[in-house]
Write a protein that binds this DNA or RNA. Structure first.
Lengths: 225, 225
DNA sequence: CGACGATTTGAAATCAGTCAAGAGCAGTGG
DNA sequence: CCACTGCTCTTGACTGATTTCAAATCGTCG
């Protein structure tokens, strides 16, 4: 990326807004006019099945460009919602589209971000499809630990998981009751200690093994792009 | 897209190769040097869990740019494999990358393709996470019918499903045995008739309802981009 | 204290997986 | 034309994981 590219990014118009927990950033079916970068707090993407079941696809944190997927398509195919109180910068799609055309390297970088996102989606699908409840939870706890650390938001072995067990259930595609039991199981094995929403990882190696966790899918390499 | 953009696409160097069923187009961990457009046949993307379980993420058919996801990242995070005998055009990544930088609108179009792909991924995750076996199968059969029709490869109500029940099991995240039972159940309800690999849809409305299928996630609008 | 929401627990029911055997079908070679 | 082989699919019986329902507990807050 050149100096001119950076300047173009910094010149993008934006407005910062604070959203309450639960506020929708995008709704399925919407035709989105803006995209959004998280400055603080957490957001989720999810979709509802016809019977009301909800599947959460990803959790986003500070620095994530949250809504490129939806924004570049004609209509949103899923919901984006604030999980906690959130501060976010909103950028008009028209500006982004102009930037993409005039600054190919920036476009490439944004595209790259959506591809990494895609890689994480795939791992989650594998997780939900081919691992049992215990492994699923272990995997997600490992991923979250690492991503928080990567974003400079927490300790790998001691962090806040910003969601209720009901929400965790929709991440893991389990029932809330079973989530509770699986947490208990991992605790009993000496992997983790969960008090309220604080996760302490007591045995990283074991948790990683149970969760079949190999962080390569995060495509992390110390920098971005 | 301008005439110059189209010319640039047509000027891309490529080699056409025929691959046997089962041949790998990309392997997890590879550092890919080329991307690939399917000319005939079917390919799948999939990933293996530590215990050997396999999850198939998508099925590709004629016209699909199969490996952009992997190609633009430093290493492949999943496998791409020929499901049937396949004819494909391989294009060096270096050429694609040059094209992306010099022709922003082409980059946008390719990006768009990966986003639509992402939308389908999400629907599959929802499918696997939040629908039971019967609904999962119904959903996938609906999707495949429509995508074949969109690609001009078959009739919506009578088509070849190019995979064994073992492979279907890895699409649906079920066991092969259960796939067999679920097929039987949908047949008994008068939804479908399956003989060998031929699917006849006898009651589209019912199948669609059982599968909770709403095709909007395919982002199809008669043209591309 | 009382109320509410989130979590935990137990028991019963259901869905899907495993194992093992058999059936169907195509290809091969006698 | 008939074994024989190998593969895929089907079936039945059993097991195991997860869901559901309902009740109890816990913690927070007014």
């Amino acid at each position: 990326m050149t100096v001119a590219d950076e300047a173009a990014i910094l010149a993008l118009p934006f407005t910062v807004r604070r959203l309450r927990s639960g506020a929708f950033i995008a709704r399925e079916g919407d035709s989105p006019q803006q995209t959004c970068v998280l400055l603080s707090g957490f957001a989720i993407r999810h979709k509802l099945a016809g019977d009301g079941g909800r599947q959460i696809f990803s959790i986003h944190m500070r620095g994530d460009v949250v809504d490129l997927h939806n924004s570049l398509l004609r209509w949103s195919d899923h919901n984006v919602q604030a999980l906690t109180e959130v501060e976010a910068a909103f950028i008009p799609m028209s500006s982004i589209k102009r930037l993409i055309v005039s600054h190919p390297l920036v476009a490439y970088l944004l595209w790259y971000e959506t591809l990494v996102d895609g890689s994480i989606f795939r791992e989650w699908t594998l997780n939900v499809g081919r691992r049992d409840g215990r492994a699923r939870l272990a995997h997600v706890l490992c991923e979250f630990a690492l991503r928080l650390k990567m974003a400079g938001l927490g300790e790998q072995n001691d962090y806040e998981l910003p969601m209720s067990q009901d929400e965790l259930a929709d991440v893991l595609a389990l029932s809330p009751v079973h989530v509770s039991r699986v947490i208990k199981a991992l605790s009993a094995e000496g992997c983790i200690t969960k008090t309220k929403r604080t996760i302490r990882i007591d045995n990283w190696a074991l948790l990683r093994q149970i969760g079949d966790f190999d962080p390569r899918y995060l495509h992390y390499n110390g920098s971005r792009g």
